[in-house]
Structures are given as structure tokens and as C-alpha cells.
Design a protein around this nucleic acid. Sequence first.
RNA 1: GUCUUGUUAGCUCAGCUGGUAGAGCACGUCACUUUUAAUGAUGUGGCCGUUGGUUCGAAUCCAACACAGGACACCA
Length: 505
Amino acid sequence: MAFENQYIQQRIEKANQLKELGINPYANNSDRNTTIAKFMNVNSDIGTLEDKRDENRHYIVAGRIKLFRLMGKASFLKIEDESGLLQIYVARDNLPEGFYNTIFKKNIEVGDIIEVGGYPFVTNKGELTLHVSDLKILTKAISPLPEKFHGVTDKEIRYRQRYLDLIMNAEVRKTFHTRSRVISLTRRFFEDKGFLEVETPMMHPIAGGANAKPFVTLHNALGVERYLRIAPELYLKRLIVGGFEAVFEINRNFRNEGMDATHNPEFTSIEFYWAYKTYKDLIVITKEYFEYLFDHLELPTLLPYGDLEVDFSKFTEIPLVESLSVIGNVPEAIVNDKEKIIAYLKEKHIDVNASMNLGQLQGELFDEYVEGKLINPTFITHYPVEISPLARRNDENPELTDRFELFIAGREIANAFSELNDPVDQLERFEGQMQAKESGGDDEAHEMDEDFVIALSYGMAPTAGQGIGIDRLVMLLTNEHSIRDVLLFPAMKPQTQETKPEEEE
RNA sequence: GUCUUGUUAGCUCAGCUGGUAGAGCACGUCACUUUUAAUGAUGUGGCCGUUGGUUCGAAUCCAACACAGGACACCA
């Protein structure tokens, strides 16, 4: 059972005692009239006063008890609200007759949420403190909090019971404040640029827009399977066909793949599509976007990330094939020769499927020798057409695409390209992907989406589009190294319960 | 999916080459009206992740399983 623990039983008993005394331990309302941060701010002058106190000021604050130091007829407590931590001084003789001994000392403890009224003063040790004359319990906590000094460090508890993590760890709260700011700023940035925020389906008849395994669900009324979306791309481009010229969507994608420090089955991205623009315009807007974020988040352009230091004033560009030799130190003579790449990789004991085409092999080389070395922001441009089924071919070299991916701290942060708007080419690319799937080489190849090809057949203006992984971006900006630390409720395996008795028949 | 490390009180952790459980905090009781992880005294609290095996005897050794962390593989 849930509440059989002895400490919880003790606390339930205290809640019952409060009820018997006519005090509801789950109060209906609070008369709080300021936050702790405002209290600290407004009363920062108290220490300069002659008595170090001002009994004419009166504030009511509320918060959770984090520390309880009881010293006979007086106590010091620390209470915390979202804005900060405040010491309060509670003395017997300042409270109604009997309150201190029968209610306060006996039935109020660490973890409870209380409301206190009183005046500000500064203690002998120099700490701004609220001198309490009224105290009311707002919410009784019947489960005890983790230990006051070490807090909760067990990652499993922190993720499964995130509320405990948030109660105990102020820096975790700060990370999620930053995450919220990033999303809010992103929205504002694109709105200010004239983009329209749209919502496209989360349940797709065809899992398109990326190469990934989807989650499958069943729509009972229609009797059909639906896929949780792996990307919103094909719907957003349909909107460009429809005449919207700049759209964006910030939302979740779902991919039925492994979980690790940089992958969660559901993750947040922004995708935006911009008509009459090319990938070169996207490079410009991406730089502006980062500048905007750093400005508003007040981050230094020389940003530490673990052992690394990322210089956000130094965005560079380099074509993918060139990066193989220049950054990856792969011999220049082999990078455009399929057989030589296979031989080279074999020599380095890297397994490759012999049926891979040149573009895929160049992608392999890039992943192996270049990606991890891209610390400062780097736009890798001109991806091979074979690994870019939705991107426009380059005018000078049709084997390449007008595409880039942005890498920072050795990780992909964004993927962008001038969109393929030739419907016949798009159809052929889908067919090529289907072949790759059937020949067994690539079980995550892109699905055929005929309806999308038909949409393109009505004409999509030249358009550039980009996706940015918000979770990884937040990781970068908050110096976190696991995606779980920037997701409030990361995916976890269920904990095994005792076997259900009714299923034993 | 593979490898690897971990799982002991509400929390943070000890527990050696097997002899049947320890600390700090928290909690209970007592003292204490300016403390800073308050202090002093005293007490309660354990399916030692689960299941099996070895053994006279298992928190400890072995195996399987579950969950978690890390690394690799795949992906964003």
C-alpha cells in the first residue's frame, strides 16, 4: 500500500491532530501579498537601519519549509517559494497563546507549505529575516523530504519523481526556466520575422519527413493504423504549396528507436519553411537566431560545454566532401571514389555494407572522422543527394544538394535545405528510397508519400526549410550532457510491480 | 541491441577473505528565545532490488531476471 511507511503514518497522524484542533491542513486559500524575491529586494535596506528592523512594514509570504531549527521557545526556519529562499523567525511570545507549543512545535515540520506574516529584521549574524506574528499551514506534506544537506542525487528518483528533484535542486529549476525561455524566445524570433505558427497532425497515415522507425497506433473508428509523426516536414511544405510563405511549428516528434544521453523517444523540434528563400538565407537567419538567443539569455559568446569551450562568434561553413579531408584528414584522393572509400574503411576496421552508394559512404566518413571535431558552430554544406531525399539539387552539381547541417560541440543541432519542389524528381527520390528499403540495405529509408508528390505537382514556390532540435540546443545552452536533464519527464521503463493476481488463472 | 558498473533505513552512504545490519541527516521524547547542515541527551526505524543456487550458515559467493548510470551500435 502507498502510505504504510512509518514516517508517513506519523505525518498523517499530525494532519489528523490539526483537523481535531479545527485547523484544515489543506487550506483553501492564501493571503500571500508578496514573493520571497520581492521581500528580499524591498527590504534590502533593513540592515542599515538603527534597530536593524522596521515593525511598521508587514508582509505575508508563503512557501515550503526546507529547514527547521527549533531552539526551545524560538525557532528559525527557511521557507522557499519559486522566487527564492527566506529565513523566518518564529518565537512563542509573538504568536497567539498556546499556538507555538501545541500546533507549531508538534504538527508543523519540514516539507509543509505555510504562510507567515510579520515584519523584516536583520539577525545578529546579518541575515534578512521575517519576524513572524502570524503563521498558517496551507498544505501538510505527509511524505518526508530527502535529506537536507545531500538532497536527492539518485538519478532514478530524480527522473521518476521529478517533483522531488525540483523541490530539492534549485539548479534543476533553473535549467527548466532556461528551457522555457528558449522556446518562448524562439517563438518570438520567428513571429517577429513574419512567420506564422501552425499546427500539423501528430498522427500520420504515412510516417514521412525523416528516416526513422515510427510508433504505431490504431484508430478504432476508421479501423486504420496511424503513425506518431517522426517529422512535420511534409505537412508544412503542403502549407507552402497552399500559399503560406513563412510557417513554423514547435512541437514533439516521436521516433521508435534507442534511448541514450542524446535520444529520447519523444523530442521537441522547431521546423520552419520560408518561401522565395534558399539555404543561404537560412545560414543568415540561423546566425541571427543564435545571436538573438545569446542576447536575451545573457550568455557569453565563449560558452563552456563540459571540457569544451564553444565560440559562438565563430560560425564557419565548409562543404561536406571538403570537410572529409580538411577536417577529417581522410586522403583527398579517395573521397569521391566508392571503391576506395570501402577499402579505406575496411582498413580502419569499420564495417560497411558493400551495397552502399557513394553519398552514403561519404556520410559514413563524415560521421566517423569529422562530426566529433566540429566544436565551434560549423555549417556543413552540399550533402550528397543520396542521403538527402527531400532536398533540392545543386545547380552546378546535381549529385549534391543545397543543404546544410549545423554542428556545435560535436553534435548536429540543425538540418536545413532548399526544398526539392520538382514533383517528378521527388517521386523518383521516393522510389529510390523504396528500393533501398526493399534491397534490405536501409530499413529506415523514407516512405513513399504519393499525396505529398501530388501536392508538389500543383507547384511549390522555391522554398528553404530548417529543423532545429530544441532539446539538444537547450543542453548546449545549459551545459547539460544528458537529454534527460533537459526533459521534465524523460522516458523511463516501467518499474515492475508485483504480478497481478487476476492474471494467474 | 552489446559491454560495463550499481541497487543496503524516508534521503546520503559504510558494511574486508561468508557467521544473520551500521553511521549521518530525518523522525519520536527531553533541554534550549538570534540559529546558519544549530547544539546536547536519548530512542524508534531494514523482504540488504527479485527469484533460484552453493553452504551448517548469504547483504557478502554464483546464476538468471528487473530497474538505473556509463560506454559502444543506430539515430536527431
